[in-house]
Lab assay of single mutants.
Amino acid sequence: AEKTGIVNVSSSLNAREGASTSSKVIGSLSGNTKVTIVGEEGAFYKIEYKGSHGYVAKEYIKDIKDE
C-alpha cells in the first residue's frame, strides 16, 4: 500500500534521480511537503510528488498514517 510521508526538514530536501547521494539532484522539496512513498531502496524512499518520481533520504521523511 502507498504511504504518505512528510518532508521533515527546516529548509529543503533534495530529491534525486537514484537511491544514492551521488545521484543527480532533480528537485527540492520544502519542509512539511506531503509526498507519496511508493517504494524503498536502502536508505532511500522512492517518492511521487506532483506526478514525478524521485529518491529522498529516509531519515528526512516522517511517515504519517493514511487518513
Results as ranks from 00 to 15, higher is better:
residue 57 A to H: 08
residue 53 H to N: 05
residue 3 K to I: 10
residue 8 N to T: 11
residue 4 T to I: 12
residue 28 S to W: 13
residue 35 V to E: 00
residue 8 N to C: 15
residue 64 I to Q: 06
residue 50 K to T: 04
residue 53 H to M: 09
residue 53 H to G: 04
residue 48 E to K: 14
residue 27 G to N: 02
residue 52 S to A: 12
residue 40 E to I: 07
residue 37 I to D: 00
residue 40 E to S: 06
residue 7 V to T: 06
residue 47 I to T: 02
residue 66 D to S: 12
residue 67 E to F: 11
residue 9 V to M: 07
residue 59 E to T: 06
residue 32 N to C: 15
residue 6 I to M: 08
residue 23 S to K: 03
residue 26 I to N: 01
residue 5 G to M: 05
residue 12 S to K: 12
residue 31 G to I: 10
residue 48 E to R: 10
residue 17 E to A: 12
residue 24 K to Y: 04
residue 43 A to R: 08
residue 22 S to R: 09
residue 9 V to C: 15
residue 24 K to M: 08
residue 43 A to I: 10
residue 12 S to F: 13
residue 12 S to D: 09
residue 21 T to V: 12
residue 4 T to F: 13
residue 47 I to D: 04
residue 12 S to C: 15
residue 6 I to L: 08
residue 27 G to H: 04
residue 39 G to V: 01
residue 18 G to Y: 13
residue 38 V to S: 02
residue 28 S to V: 14
residue 37 I to M: 00
residue 63 D to T: 14
residue 31 G to L: 09
residue 12 S to V: 11
residue 35 V to M: 01
residue 19 A to N: 05
residue 57 A to L: 15
residue 7 V to C: 06
residue 15 A to D: 02
residue 10 S to F: 08
residue 46 K to H: 05
residue 40 E to R: 03
residue 37 I to P: 01
residue 20 S to Y: 07
residue 62 K to V: 13
residue 9 V to G: 10
residue 9 V to P: 08
residue 21 T to D: 13
residue 58 K to M: 07
residue 51 G to Q: 06
residue 62 K to R: 12
residue 1 A to Y: 14
residue 55 Y to L: 02
residue 23 S to D: 05
residue 8 N to D: 09
residue 61 I to D: 00
residue 26 I to L: 09
residue 36 T to S: 07
residue 64 I to S: 06
residue 3 K to W: 14
residue 64 I to P: 06
residue 30 S to L: 14
residue 5 G to H: 04
residue 23 S to E: 03
residue 62 K to H: 08
residue 24 K to H: 06
residue 37 I to W: 01
residue 6 I to S: 04
residue 63 D to H: 09
residue 67 E to R: 13
residue 46 K to G: 02
residue 44 F to W: 14
residue 48 E to H: 08
residue 46 K to L: 12
residue 29 L to W: 02
residue 61 I to C: 03
residue 28 S to Y: 12
residue 61 I to N: 00
residue 23 S to C: 10
residue 37 I to S: 00
residue 44 F to V: 01
residue 51 G to S: 06
residue 59 E to F: 06
residue 6 I to H: 06
residue 44 F to L: 02
residue 10 S to Q: 12
residue 57 A to E: 15
residue 8 N to Y: 08
residue 49 Y to W: 09
residue 65 K to E: 10
residue 31 G to F: 11
residue 48 E to I: 14
residue 20 S to I: 07
residue 31 G to M: 10
residue 1 A to R: 13
residue 29 L to C: 06
residue 18 G to F: 14
residue 38 V to D: 02
residue 56 V to Q: 00
residue 18 G to L: 12
residue 29 L to E: 00
residue 63 D to K: 09
residue 16 R to S: 06
residue 41 E to S: 08
residue 31 G to W: 09
residue 58 K to E: 00
residue 45 Y to H: 05
residue 66 D to K: 09
residue 10 S to H: 11
residue 24 K to C: 08
residue 24 K to L: 08
residue 8 N to K: 12
residue 45 Y to P: 05
residue 50 K to E: 13
residue 21 T to P: 12
residue 36 T to Y: 13
residue 51 G to D: 08
residue 1 A to N: 12
residue 54 G to L: 08
residue 29 L to Q: 01
residue 5 G to I: 05
residue 26 I to G: 01
residue 34 K to G: 03
residue 48 E to V: 14
residue 29 L to H: 01
residue 34 K to D: 02
residue 55 Y to F: 11
residue 43 A to V: 07
residue 4 T to H: 10
residue 28 S to F: 12
residue 35 V to N: 01
residue 61 I to G: 00
residue 39 G to Y: 03
residue 36 T to W: 12
residue 32 N to E: 07
residue 56 V to Y: 00
residue 24 K to Q: 07
residue 25 V to I: 13
residue 14 N to R: 10
residue 3 K to E: 02
residue 41 E to R: 04
residue 42 G to Y: 04
residue 1 A to C: 15
residue 17 E to N: 06
residue 43 A to H: 09
residue 47 I to P: 04
residue 12 S to P: 08
residue 52 S to K: 13
residue 37 I to C: 05
residue 21 T to F: 14
residue 42 G to T: 01
residue 55 Y to V: 00
residue 50 K to W: 07
residue 7 V to N: 02
residue 2 E to V: 15
residue 67 E to K: 13
residue 40 E to Q: 07
residue 40 E to Y: 04
residue 61 I to Q: 00
residue 8 N to I: 13
residue 61 I to S: 01
residue 50 K to Q: 13
residue 5 G to A: 04
residue 62 K to I: 14
residue 10 S to A: 12
residue 21 T to H: 14
residue 35 V to C: 06
residue 3 K to T: 07
residue 38 V to L: 13
residue 59 E to D: 08
residue 21 T to L: 14
residue 2 E to R: 15
residue 41 E to L: 07
residue 52 S to N: 09
residue 58 K to W: 02
residue 31 G to S: 13
residue 67 E to G: 12
residue 5 G to V: 04
residue 53 H to W: 14
residue 66 D to F: 14
residue 12 S to E: 10
residue 8 N to W: 09
residue 23 S to G: 05
residue 10 S to Y: 09
residue 38 V to G: 00
residue 48 E to P: 01
residue 16 R to Y: 15
residue 65 K to G: 08
residue 30 S to M: 14
residue 30 S to Y: 09
residue 43 A to L: 11
residue 48 E to S: 07
residue 56 V to N: 00
residue 34 K to A: 06
residue 5 G to T: 03
residue 59 E to Y: 06
residue 2 E to L: 15
residue 13 L to E: 03
residue 27 G to I: 11
residue 66 D to Q: 11
residue 4 T to W: 11
residue 57 A to Y: 11
residue 51 G to E: 07
residue 22 S to F: 07
residue 13 L to V: 15
residue 15 A to N: 02
residue 66 D to I: 14
residue 37 I to A: 00
residue 34 K to W: 07
residue 32 N to H: 10
residue 18 G to M: 12
residue 10 S to G: 11
residue 3 K to R: 14
residue 4 T to S: 10
residue 59 E to C: 11
residue 17 E to D: 09
residue 50 K to N: 14
residue 28 S to Q: 14
residue 59 E to Q: 10
residue 33 T to W: 06
residue 56 V to G: 00
residue 3 K to D: 04
residue 11 S to K: 12
residue 1 A to H: 14
residue 60 Y to N: 06
residue 11 S to H: 14
residue 19 A to H: 04
residue 23 S to P: 02
residue 17 E to P: 04
residue 30 S to D: 11
residue 39 G to Q: 03
residue 44 F to A: 00
residue 2 E to I: 15
